[in-house]
C-alpha cells in the first residue's frame, strides 16, 4: 500500500477508536439513565428513589393479580424471580397483560414500598410460535411437572 494511504488509514482507525472509547465510556457512565426501568431487585435494595416518577419492569407474578369488581383498579406483583414489588394501577391494561407476562409500569414508589402506576405497558419476548405449538408446549410442561410430582410422592 502507498505510504500516504497507509498514513490516512491509520488516522481513520485512530479516529474511530477514539470515538468508540468516548461513546463507550459515556454510555457506561449513563447506564442507569439509559436503562428504561428499575427491576424488582433494585427496588427491593432501595436503589430506586421514592416519590419520583420512575419505571418498574419485570414479570407479573403468577396468581398475584387482584381486580376490583366495581372499578378498573387492579393490584399485582412484579417479580424478577429474586424479588418482587407490589403494583397498584387504575386504568385499562394492554391486551397482552397476563400473569407470567412481562410488563413495564410507570409511576411512583410510595414510602410503604407500593408502586402506584399511572401507565402499564406490556413487554413481550423474542419468541414467536403458532398457538398450537404454544399449547402443546404448555401441555408438555404440565405433564412433566405432574410426572415429577408423582415421582416425588412415590419416593416417600
Amino acid at each position: 500500500m502507498h505510504p500516504i494511504r497507509k498514513k490516512r488509514l491509520t488516522i481513520v482507525v485512530f479516529l474511530m477508536a477514539g470515538i468508540a472509547i468516548a461513546v463507550g465510556l459515556t454510555t457506561y457512565a449513563l447506564r442507569q439513565n439509559i436503562n428504561l426501568f428499575y427491576d424488582p431487585t433494585q427496588i427491593a435494595a432501595g436503589e430506586a428513589p421514592t416519590d419520583v416518577r420512575i419505571r418498574a419492569g419485570g414479570m407479573v407474578e403468577e396468581g398475584s393479580v387482584q381486580r376490583e369488581s366495581d372499578s378498573l383498579k387492579v393490584q399485582f406483583r412484579v417479580t424478577d424471580y429474586s424479588a418482587s414489588v407490589p403494583v397498584q394501577y387504575d386504568g385499562i391494561l394492554p391486551d397482552l397483560f397476563a400473569e407470567g407476562q412481562g410488563v413495564v409500569a410507570m409511576g411512583r414508589l410510595n414510602s410503604e414500598g407500593l408502586f402506584v402506576a399511572d401507565q402499564v405497558l406490556a413487554k413481550h419476548d423474542e419468541n414467536y410460535m403458532p398457538p398450537e405449538v404454544a399449547d402443546s408446549l404448555e401441555r408438555a410442561e404440565k405433564s412433566r411437572a405432574d410426572a415429577e410430582k408423582a415421582a416425588q410422592s412415590a419416593s416417600y
Binding site: R31, H124, D125, N127, M129
Partner: peptide, 19 residues
C-alpha cells in the same frame, strides 16, 4: 440495557427463536 423492545429474533450464532 433493559428496554421495552424485545431482544433479536434472528441471531448470528444461535438458532432463531421462531419456527
Amino acid at each position: 440495557w433493559n428496554t421495552l423492545h424485545q431482544p433479536a429474533t434472528l441471531k448470528l450464532t444461535e438458532e432463531p427463536s421462531m419456527p
